[in-house]
Design a protein around this nucleic acid. Structure first.
Lengths: 248, 248
DNA sequence: CCAGTCGGTTCATTATTTGAACCAGTGTTT
DNA sequence: AAACACTGGTTCAAATAATGAACCGACTGG
């Protein structure tokens, strides 16, 4: 891996649950030598992408990231515009709703509104979702240009659970359903016990840039509820698309 | 410079005003070879810190930055908690107010609320402010431990304008004033024609973590107004500090 | 007081980065 | 339509920067 890749993989070790990590730990988890990790960390710190807590000497993500994210967000206000809609959809359905952005061939979860219920699906910001196997991914493929979707179907499809659609034909049918109805459905395709309804969010050029998804415990879902969630998801996704393109 | 440093400096070329840049341009401005720049960009893109617009092939900041910034923000909600206070302070005073975070020996501007007036001071998010020469910096030094402040006074002080305080004694007096009154004052110390009032924001351990600053055209300021701005700045900074430590 | 951590440093070895020269494509200008 | 000046992207020998085992000193808990 490139040196830059290693440095970024250090950044990616920090999570919501573990926002500060010590040097030895970082090196171990990244599979790097301590000396290497430290050199990378100081390089990142020089640009404020990493900070070191002076007392504990542990490392954490730096203010430079906030700065860069703000520049990006000003130009591409995906999360900012979508967040209130996501929150409302979560309240309306009582389920966890998450927002994903297409990036480098997969969907990156960038925002989550958790259900208030005790039995809920938990999704972490930062999770990378495959295009097959999740309702979000299927909705994305259904909204993509045909050549993109069929190119994706060519490649072998990894199974995540016993329910993952790995047959191109099965997946093509799910995509066709999503294209026709506006929303996609996936039951336990990525994680056992999780049912989700997805809908694509379109950019100004009509191409999909991300998705939203309502994730529920399978036990709570029947066909009728799925259809009503699908309608709500479609409405929310359209609203976000419209706001992105300045139409609302 | 380290490879990582070069890669990050590519990220730093993107600004609010220029959120998308082509390869040749990036290479030129970063002082890198085109081949090198491209290799770094693809490494960054693999981790979603950079995205490439498929149509124009231009590069822009990637979704991974939003993700990392959100992790940082959840742990260290400086901007999130301070932003509403900053906005209100700007409305109350009618002037531009900016929020800076201490990082790597300087203050990094992370949030700005611009004045509504035509004749106003413009500050960009991302600007790096020295600790001497700006009201923010002086307020920060005044709130720091004595050894930190005096260590800073040892080093030579760069002049930015004819008004920059470069004499350790002069600066020490300004720091003493700030320590006594709760706010600092700097007239044209960093940029001609700009007057500013600064106040430090303290973390849970009582150490300063950042500052806020009211920036006005000098023409608009007299001693009486400066004092009233100072009081408002102090109040706002205290409120943010309290919210950060969970006291409000 | 020993063993096992930690963060941090050194420097000979090694592997990665570098950049001039090269495509191919596009839009301008002559 | 030809010459031109850009663009993004690629190649590979040469040069440079990254690497990691071994080492500190400091701290912690048994």
């Amino acid at each position: 891996m490139s040196t830059v890749g290693k440095a970024v993989s250090l950044l990616e070790l920090f999570t919501l649950h573990e926002p500060e990590i010590g040097l030895s730990d970082l090196a171990r988890r990244a599979g790097l030598d301590k000396a290497t990790a430290r050199r990378l960390l100081t390089a990142l710190a020089a640009h404020r992408l990493i900070e070191q807590e002076p007392r504990s000497r542990r490392y954490r993500l730096g203010a430079g990231l906030s700065r860069l994210a703000r520049i990006r967000d000003a130009h591409f206000p995906f999360v900012r515009l979508a967040a209130p809609v996501i929150r409302e959809l979560s309240q309306e359905t009582g389920e966890t709703v998450h927002l994903s952005e297409f990036s480098a061939g997969a969907l990156l979860t960038v925002h989550v509104a958790l259900s208030a219920k005790a039995n809920r699906v938990n999704v972490d910001v930062g999770q990378v979702l495959p295009l097959h196997g999740t309702a979000s991914g299927i909705a994305f493929l259904a909204a993509s240009r045909l050549e993109v979707a069929s190119a994706y179907l060519e490649k072998p499809l990894q199974a995540f659970t016993a329910h993952t659609m790995t047959e191109p034909d099965t997946l093509a049918k799910a995509i066709a359903f999503a294209a026709a109805s506006g929303y996609s459905r996936s039951s336990q395709g990525y994680e056992e016990g999780v049912h989700s309804i997805g809908a694509a969010i379109l950019g100004a050029d009509g191409q999909p840039i991300g998705t939203l998804s309502i994730a529920s415990p399978v036990s709570r879902i029947d066909d009728h509820l799925a259809a009503s969630q699908g309608e709500a998801a479609t409405r929310a996704a359209r609203l976000i698309s419209a706001r992105l393109t300045g139409e609302a």
